[in-house]
Write a protein that binds this DNA or RNA. Structure first.
Lengths: 210, 210
DNA sequence: ACTCTTCTGTGATAAATGTTACTGTAGGTT
DNA sequence: AACCTACAGTAACATTTATCACAGAAGAGT
């Protein structure tokens, strides 16, 4: 166990790994589980050791706008940011591939920041990369039209799962882009005509999407 | 001088203030100055002591999408995040009201994080509040239509300047919302008919905008 | 085979936003 | 006054996206 954590988080010092083992709780969650809801109080910092999580921003009308993916070796930036104050979560986290996560009590955050250089660097890097990712999301919705956003969405999905098949219904995609199912169907059809994808039921094969 | 820094950053310890005085450089910039461009390397962490700065995300086509304001007592989160690695800036910063800023060499960041509790807390709080602000921006463009976004824009402007007059042309507003001048004119006219604003040349008076 | 449900495709239409083109107006300059 | 320029208003039209309505196809269960 100790060994595997070290492999997933190669930059952590061995002392830090030991401390995590000591203070953290490893928990498993099945696909579909909502790990965190908007407005809930955050009690733990979450390190992902296995599986996949999607982070959404929820609209008042029930929209679920996809922000980004969390994968093994990563951590939830939101759960780190809301440290001492035990702030409310601004996002919703959903398991999309059975996960194992290491739950770390929030009070450890501050302590380790001072005691473990590799933790400090990990936290800063997490902030930085998530901030950049959110800025890229802003780019997409501010500057691009739906067809470009859809292409970007598919590319991101295939990057995240490491495969070229997207096993989602048009409705699910529409929800995560905050548009309607019909729009997604139409745009996908156009992409198929351009030879970018092949459409099957509940599956989209990416062809030339680099 | 030492005194005024302490007033603007009330949570900083007196030792930290002294260290800042010692290592930082106070600089002044006039309205209109571009403090930082997308793609430039960041060499300093910036603390604002006077004036106002707007942070933009630049589109490939030359769009300037407004993200948020920076005011006295605040710091540029981006310039903090891109610490050790001296990363490229992902944003553009423009002075909109003559500013004084304290430039702090990036290498101080890490050092002070360990040595000054009040610096550490300030940095974490800066990350947190900016992250939240950007999430709110995502909300706006993902879930809201242009008329709502325009209202939000005007409200934010009046909050930032503490007055109820917006001294901007329709074109400037359109640029910052990444839409066209005509659309802004139309929507403003509708708002005027609803009694929300009064339109003058180069000025919009907010009436009932709470 | 039949039924049911979910998913997909598509036309028709509406609404929001973007674009083009033109007009008038306020203010500054000569 | 005459002129110039930036700003603002607005009509007409194009494009994009959203909504409504409906039909057919695929798969699951009986």
């Amino acid at each position: 166990m100790q060994n595997s954590l070290q492999i997933i988080f190669p930059n952590f010092s061995s002392e830090l790994i030991a401390t995590i083992e000591e203070n953290g709780t490893l928990q498993n969650f099945e696909t579909g589980t909502i790990l965190m809801r908007t407005g809930q109080y955050i009690k733990n910092t979450v390190l992902i050791t296995k599986g996949k999580i999607k982070i959404y921003r929820e609209g008042e009308d029930g929209g679920e706008f996809l922000m980004y993916y969390l994968q093994p070796g990563q951590a939830c930036a939101i759960s780190m940011i809301c440290t001492a104050k035990s702030e409310k979560s601004q996002i919703m986290a959903k398991v999309v591939e059975d996960v194992s996560v290491m739950m770390i009590p929030l009070q450890m955050m501050d302590k380790w920041m001072m005691e473990h250089r590799s933790w400090y660097e990990f936290v800063i890097e997490t902030y930085r990369s998530r901030f950049e990712e959110v800025l890229e999301v802003v780019d997409n919705i501010a500057f691009r039209s739906m067809d470009e956003r859809l292409e970007f969405y598919l590319k991101r999905h295939s990057d995240a799962c490491g495969c070229s098949e997207v096993n989602l219904s048009h409705q699910e995609i529409a929800t995560e882009l905050n548009t309607s199912r019909e729009v997604v169907s139409r745009l996908l059809k156009k992409m198929e005509q351009r030879g970018l994808v092949k459409l099957n039921r509940n599956q989209i094969e990416l062809l030339n999407v680099k």
